[in-house]
């Protein structure tokens, strides 16, 4: 991506009676057949707040988002946006900007045609539509390419336009479903800056990711979801405080890693262990103090250690602490 999207503060446009919570999900539950995908999830997002829904793949992030956007009905629970219930065809939809995980644009239409089309879907017309299309093209840095077909765009340009299409109608709530999956580091950096700007401009943002560093960087509050349940919620600082001063020790190694992890669990000062993908992750009270014992255990278990990293407490540690597994794909 060439640069971050920039946004001006639109809070003054919304009037003085904006409710305290832009998004209010209460008791959302959804099953697919016998599988309980979402289990009694409740969350609230205030104006200008960026809320990160953090969880591994398959945890229920996208299902939650689809219910928030009215793309999926809940078996139980309610979704309200600015006090309006989210039902099929409901006015609440006009308040939500939805950014799908994959680029959802028409490659054989130009950028301007795509924006005009999606603007029409949000009932923008005439001069207002033309102005918003021009503004979004400017916002995404695509003014010069507005007449070009999307199929001729780079991946970063498509990503920007994908987000821009959700901003046409000045949504009160912006919902982004893992917008950085498969994105190069530069574009990812720019997207995160943009999301940060949306929140600063007064927009409520619901952002799903399975990258804990993204959540730490841009989110005011984070909800950790696993197996369809919201297992923790708070600011990144509050969540990290749950694991006190525990460090995370990550060893890249070969050998019987599950056996090695079990052996480490018996060591003094080790509170949680996890293994997989050629890596053993330990949650420990003092990384530096426990490291010699860990390396001894590796030697005894005939484990070839390739690298060791001691990490200060972060959301990854929180997830490990709460679920007993690390937040890897």
């Amino acid at each position: 991506m060439d640069g971050a999207l920039t946004l001006t503060d639109t809070r003054s446009d919304r009037g003085a009676d904006t409710p305290a919570a832009v998004l209010d999900c209460a008791g959302l539950t959804r099953s697919f057949g016998d599988r309980l995908a979402i289990d009694d999830v409740s969350l609230r997002i205030a104006p200008g707040e960026t809320y990160g829904l953090l969880g591994p793949n398959g945890a229920g992030k996208s299902t939650t988002i689809r219910m928030v956007c009215g793309l999926l009905t809940a078996d139980a629970g309610t979704v309200t946006v600015a006090g309006l219930p989210m039902t099929p065809g409901a006015p609440a939809r006009a308040l939500v900007g939805y950014v799908p995980q994959d680029v959802a644009l028409y490659p054989d239409l130009t950028a301007r045609e795509n924006l005009r089309f999606f603007g029409h879907m949000y009932r923008l017309r005439g001069k207002q539509l033309a102005e918003r299309v021009a503004e979004v093209l400017d916002l995404t840095g695509l003014t010069d390419r507005g007449g070009d077909r999307v199929e001729s765009f780079s991946g970063g340009m498509r990503r920007r336009l994908n987000i821009g299409a959700a901003l046409l109608h000045r949504p009160t709530l912006l919902v982004l479903d893992e917008p950085t999956v498969g994105v190069d580091p530069q574009s990812r950096h720019a997207i995160l800056d943009s999301v940060r700007a949306f929140g600063a401009a007064g927009m409520a943002v619901l952002y799903t990711t399975h990258y804990m560093e993204e959540a730490e960087r841009i989110c005011d509050r984070v909800g950790i979801i696993d197996h369809g349940k919201l297992i923790a919620e708070g600011t990144p600082r509050e969540l990290v405080a749950q694991v006190a001063e525990r460090d995370r020790v990550e060893l890249t190694a070969t050998g019987n890693l599950p056996g090695f992890a079990t052996a480490c669990a018996a060591l003094t000062g080790v509170t949680h262990t996890d293994s997989g993908d050629g890596m053993v992750t330990l949650l420990v009270e003092d990384g530096r103090a426990v490291l010699p014992a860990v390396l001894d255990a590796a030697e005894r278990a005939d484990i070839a250690v390739r690298s060791v990293q001691v990490v200060e407490p972060d959301l990854e540690s929180v997830f490990l602490h709460l679920t007993g597994t690390s937040l890897r794909e």
């Binding site: 009215g70 793309l71 939809r93 799908p100 959802a104 879907m121 009932r123």
Partner: peptide
């Protein structure tokens, strides 16, 4: 999805 997320 993008269309049906809109108020139509």
């Amino acid at each position: 999805d993008r269309i049906t997320a809109a108020p139509v």
